[in-house]
Amino acid sequence: MEWLAMARHGESVGNVAWREAETQRLEEIDIGLRDPDVPLSETGRRQAEALGRRLAAMPPDERPTVVYSSPYVRAAETARIALAELDDLPVRYDERLRDRENGALYALTWRGITARFPEEAARKRLTGKFYYRPPGGESWADVALRLRSVLAEIQREHPDGRVLVVAHDAVVVLTRYIVERLSEKELLEIERTLVPNASLTLWARKDGELRLVTSNSTEHLDAADLPA
């Protein structure tokens, strides 16, 4: 590929509910939706518009030629809103780009996990974040496996393309793990830094390989006076 860019979805109502749960020291976030159905907040929609303006400001021969997205509502909405600035470039949805599945632990804060599933909290501490798989859910290694599949397919189909992917924080971080050939230790160090909503991480081809150009870039949000 000429370049590959990963954009995290804009702020979702789930992100808002999570912050409220942490502030109030709750065991569970008040969301009432399946993870695939969680939509953007009003701030998230404005962030997606700002992302679109950034993409539209690129010279025509540097803009995305193809766009992929997670089918989860918050990502799909971000892609739709952003691409309205680019004459509605078609989006290809792929379930392999979905967020990490937390299974029985979905919507629980760490406080909730330790209170309701103390044995799982202990197992996670022992196993470590990368390989721990919650009941009915996925480990980070599981997500990396499906990402390797979809990224290889994208490379085969668009060998000279400029590919934009709209997805989730775990997908962004694990794409760095795959593309940059990171170790588990390096991945977990990177993961300590939050991937901001509607941020852009981009790799460009150099000497036959994709090299990181920018990570977690939010200059378009700063220009619009929006939170990251």
Rank of each mutant, 00 (worst) to 15 (best):
E101R: 12
E22V: 15
P64N: 10
W110Q: 13
R46V: 01
A57S: 15
D207Y: 01
E157K: 07
A84Y: 07
S215W: 15
P60F: 13
L33R: 12
E189P: 04
H220R: 08
R8W: 05
D30W: 00
D225W: 14
A223R: 13
L226M: 10
P118V: 00
H168Y: 08
D225E: 15
Y72Q: 12
L202S: 13
A50I: 05
R45D: 00
M6F: 14
E2C: 00
E209N: 04
R205N: 01
V150I: 13
Y131H: 08
E180I: 03
L51A: 01
G137Q: 02
G128P: 14
P36L: 00
G161H: 07
V67L: 12
T193Y: 02
E153W: 06
G112L: 09
R100Q: 10
R123L: 14
K185H: 10
D87T: 03
E27H: 08
L86I: 13
E85N: 12
E120A: 09
L210P: 00
I113W: 08
S149M: 06
A141Q: 09
L221I: 12
R80T: 06
A107T: 10
A76N: 03
A223H: 09
R80A: 09
G103L: 04
G52P: 15
G128S: 06
S69T: 15
G32H: 11
M58G: 01
K206C: 05
E2H: 12
E157N: 05
V38R: 13
E85D: 07
A115M: 09
F130P: 15
R146P: 02
V179T: 07
E101N: 12
E184Y: 06
M58E: 15
F130Y: 15
L226G: 10
T175E: 03
A170S: 11
G10K: 00
A224S: 14
D35W: 11
E157I: 01
D30S: 07
D142E: 11
L226I: 15
A5W: 03
V16Q: 05
P118Y: 00
V143N: 04
E219C: 09
E11F: 02
W140R: 10
G103W: 02
G10P: 04
G128K: 05
P71T: 02
R123Y: 08
T214W: 02
L126Q: 15
V165Q: 01
A84Q: 13
E2R: 13
I154Y: 11
S139D: 08
I81K: 02
E20K: 03
A224T: 11
A224P: 12
K129E: 15
N197C: 11
V67Q: 08
I29S: 10
A170Y: 05
S183Q: 07
V38K: 09
A84L: 07
V172L: 07
P59G: 02
A198Y: 12
L89R: 14
R111G: 01
M58P: 02
A79G: 13
V150C: 08
